[in-house]
């Protein structure tokens, strides 16, 4: 499903020197597999998710998703590929403030060739327990509710891979578990592979596979 090979990623410092962030010989996630990525702050977890999503391009290496090396695709095709095959949940401010909950979910379908499926959007919001909040703007939703809308949106397009970057970091402890359960459950139902980043210790123990980034990344921070 997802296979990274010989990935190198460095950022240029303002003084011109290259600051290596990622150097990963191999990273692999199976179809429908759910795994947790952990690591110190600044170790490059977000950078890795961006590379996987095709949001930033590695300096070298192969990012193969569903059999295609996305580093070889043109930017436009890569954007479309992301729209079709991947979902992404950020730590905060996932939603566009001008759009209602339902519209935010529909936005997850807006950039593909498929026609918007309003029924599916409603259904997803129902599954995350927000069937009564369809027309609410993000400002009228709690942070936890916003994250649930973001989960629904990330799954709107029936992706094969969901990337979740600390989705519970801003949610109070009581609701963290709820959201993680929701993500895992829906991914299981839809047969979606999950790569989740988190710092929360309790959640760690629930995953069968937990990768420490420093174990797979040869760059030492």
């Amino acid at each position: 499903m997802l296979l990274l090979t010989d990935i190198q990623k460095a950022y240029s410092e303002p003084d011109g020197t290259r600051l290596p962030i990622l150097q990963i010989a191999q990273f692999h996630v199976d179809r429908g597999e759910q795994m947790l990525l952990v690591g110190r702050s600044g170790s490059g977890k977000t950078t890795l998710l961006h590379v996987i999503a095709g949001i930033s391009k590695p300096d070298s290496g192969i990012v193969k998703i569903a059999g295609r090396d996305i580093t070889q695709l043109s930017e436009a095709v890569r954007d479309r590929f992301r729209a079709d095959k991947m979902g992404y949940v950020f730590q905060t401010f996932n939603l566009l403030p001008a759009f209602s909950a339902l519209e935010n979910v529909l936005l997850g379908m807006a950039f593909t060739r498929n026609a918007a499926d309003v029924d599916r959007a409603r259904d997803l919001l129902k599954r995350v327990g927000l069937e009564h909040r369809l027309s609410h703007r993000p400002a009228a939703l709690s942070v936890g509710e916003q994250q649930r809308v973001a989960v629904a949106r990330a799954l709107a397009n029936k992706p094969q891979l969901l990337l979740a970057d600390e989705p519970t970091a801003n949610v109070d402890a009581g609701h963290q578990q709820q959201i993680v359960d929701l993500i895992r459950e829906t991914c299981r139902e839809e047969d979606v592979a999950l790569v989740m980043v988190t710092h929360t210790a309790e959640i760690r123990s629930q995953f069968d596979r937990v990768d420490e980034l420093s174990d797979i990344n040869q760059v030492d921070h």
Binding site: A53, I55, E75, A76, D79, R80, F81, R82, A83, D84, M86, Y88, F90, F93, N94, L95, L96, P97, L107, G108, A110, F111, T112, R153, N157
Partner: peptide, 16 residues
């Protein structure tokens, strides 16, 4: 900036 970033992450192209 962020709105545009989100839309791009959702698969919107530069031209879009």
């Amino acid at each position: 900036h962020r709105e545009i970033g989100i839309m791009r992450a959702l698969g919107a192209g530069r031209v879009t």
